[in-house]
Amino acid sequence: MTDNALPTSLDQARERLNNALKMAERPLNSATLLAVSKTKPAAMIRQAWQHGQREFGENYLQEALEKQAELADLEAIVWHFIGPLQSNKTRAVAENFAWVHSVDRLKIAKRLSEQRPKHLPPLNICLQVNISREDSKSGVMPDEVMSLASEVATLPHIKLRGLMAIPAPAKSLEEQRVPLAALRQLLKDLQAALPNAPLDTLSMGMSDDLEAAVLEGATLVRLGTAIFGARSTQRIAQ
């Protein structure tokens, strides 16, 4: 990707999100673009930041930590951990990220709670839901979300903000909306059951289903290739 290409693609991604919000008759500030920067060099993240992007999603911990160190001079940058999270990586995530989208076990939530430095704001948490019930996907099953959320919401130093999902691929807009609508309903059920929790986040929607996700209430949409170009097949060992 050339130096001029990234600002252009970032503008196009923002325009696509804004068009989807208009189609859904939602305010333009009601959903945030999360730039998925995994496998991309720190220089590209810096360029996106210079073009006004502030929220970045990373999947691979060691790679993310190295980029964070290189970009420590950037103000107001917000790091989201969106990849699978193992117990032996929770401390580094708790210490270096503002958001975690991939919590699907109480054990992981407890470790993040215990390991979040006290001088930092509470760590924002989304529960990852296996909304399409796929054997190949991580996430808590839909019928177990209420029980897990009820326990996570009581933990100190973390803040349960909502739900995340990566539905199975679907061909049409109508088919895409079905699992996303189910996730939206799950969040509504949680809001009713846990009125004191700040449950305001639906992390859903990627390049193939952004419009469907926005129609179903997505508040964080995750775009990677559309902003940064094709991902490298090589990355730093984890």
Rank of each mutant, 00 (worst) to 15 (best):
L199D: 05
K118M: 13
H157V: 01
P167H: 06
V178H: 07
V178G: 01
T39A: 04
K110V: 13
R184C: 05
A149E: 03
R111E: 12
G224H: 03
T8Y: 01
L120G: 00
L123T: 04
E70D: 10
Q115Y: 02
T219Y: 11
F56N: 08
R161V: 10
A237K: 02
M204L: 07
S172T: 15
Q176W: 13
L127E: 02
E114A: 15
V152G: 00
Q191T: 04
L190Y: 08
N130H: 04
K40C: 06
S150H: 03
G83N: 06
E134Q: 03
R105A: 01
Q53Y: 13
S232D: 15
V140M: 09
S207E: 13
M164I: 00
L6I: 06
A230G: 02
L65R: 11
L28R: 02
Q185L: 13
L148S: 00
Q176E: 14
R14K: 12
I166N: 02
H51Y: 08
Q47T: 03
C126M: 12
P156A: 05
H101P: 00
N18S: 08
L21S: 05
H51S: 13
I166K: 02
L180F: 14
P84Q: 12
A42L: 09
M44T: 00
H119N: 14
T201K: 03
L220M: 12
K110L: 06
R91F: 11
I131W: 15
A72V: 11
A42N: 07
N88R: 12
Q115C: 08
K171H: 14
Q176K: 14
A42M: 10
K188V: 03
P167Q: 01
L183H: 12
A24C: 04
D73H: 12
K118Q: 15
A64Y: 09
Q47M: 10
R26V: 10
E134C: 02
T90S: 12
L127T: 01
P142H: 11
L28S: 04
L127Y: 12
S113N: 04
K159I: 00
L190W: 06
V93F: 13
W49E: 01
K188Y: 15
P142M: 13
D104H: 00
E174C: 06
L85F: 02
D3P: 06
D209V: 05
H157L: 05
K89W: 15
P7G: 05
R184Q: 14
I158F: 10
N29E: 15
M44S: 05
S87W: 09
Q50H: 13
R235V: 09
R177H: 08
R184M: 09
L106V: 00
A170C: 04
L163N: 01
E114S: 08
P117C: 09
V129C: 09
D208G: 03
E63V: 08
A193T: 07
T90W: 15
A149G: 03
A13P: 02
